[in-house]
Design a protein around this nucleic acid. Structure first.
Lengths: 114, 114
DNA sequence: TAATCATGTCAGATTATCTGACATCAGTGC
DNA sequence: GCACTGATGTCAGATAATCTGACATGATTA
């Protein structure tokens, strides 16, 4: 299958849905985007479209904020745990990821979602 | 775990999202609702809100339509698989009715989609 | 041929989302 | 105390999404 279409990555949720799922306000969600913490897609009408992974990220951000971290700090943690990989590094990571998937059970998810 | 709150049951998806996920038109989705095949919720602004189970139902309906069934037949199958626990008699009548129909009308309802 | 089924499309009304601006309020540092 | 920053609220004007009801259509059925 050339289509590794993870539904979690598929941006189909408008902001109203994300508001319902995260209990964050539109203002908060857009502000976190402006601070570089999330990067939702846009549809043809310029409306934001979120994927489930974005919802999970937002719930994580919400928890980290509640624990006293600053948005700037949260972003630094993000950038650190997901560094910009070079092409070679990305390929290597993908290789290892695929190997892991065949041997281990699907990655445990602690977040709530669909 | 008193909260077996299956997120699949949670109605948070507007029709645009459902259109994207099912590749059905708004017209089709609303028509299936009018025929009693799905029962989405409404938000405060009277917009329809679907749960993931609704999306799955719609995909099933789409497949059954493509296989030649009528919306009426699909609905009867639904009602049969999720019967009202009270009247077993009605269920039996419906079962016979379906059997009769399948005997008298072979129903070669082939559609051309694209 | 007439009727039904499933779908398309359009118009007018209402709701949702967008951006940008100004306001507020709690900390932080001087 | 005062100014500054960070996070959020709110508002207004514009555009997009959704709603309902109606009319149209091709295919199938009686």
């Amino acid at each position: 299958m050339t289509e590794i279409h993870d539904v979690r990555q598929r941006a189909v949720l408008p902001i109203g849905t994300v508001i319902a799922l995260t209990e964050l306000s539109a203002r908060q969600i857009r502000y976190y985007e402006k601070q570089g913490l999330i990067q939702p897609q846009r549809n043809a009408g310029n409306h934001r479209l979120y994927a489930l992974v974005d919802v999970e990220d937002l719930l994580a951000i919400k928890a980290q904020l509640a624990s006293g971290l600053t948005l700037g700090e949260i972003k630094r943690l993000q950038d650190q745990s997901v560094p910009h990989p070079s092409d070679a590094e990305a390929r290597q990571m993908l290789r290892e990821e695929l190997l892991n998937q065949s041997r281990f059970t699907p990655a445990p998810r602690i977040k709530q979602g669909f």
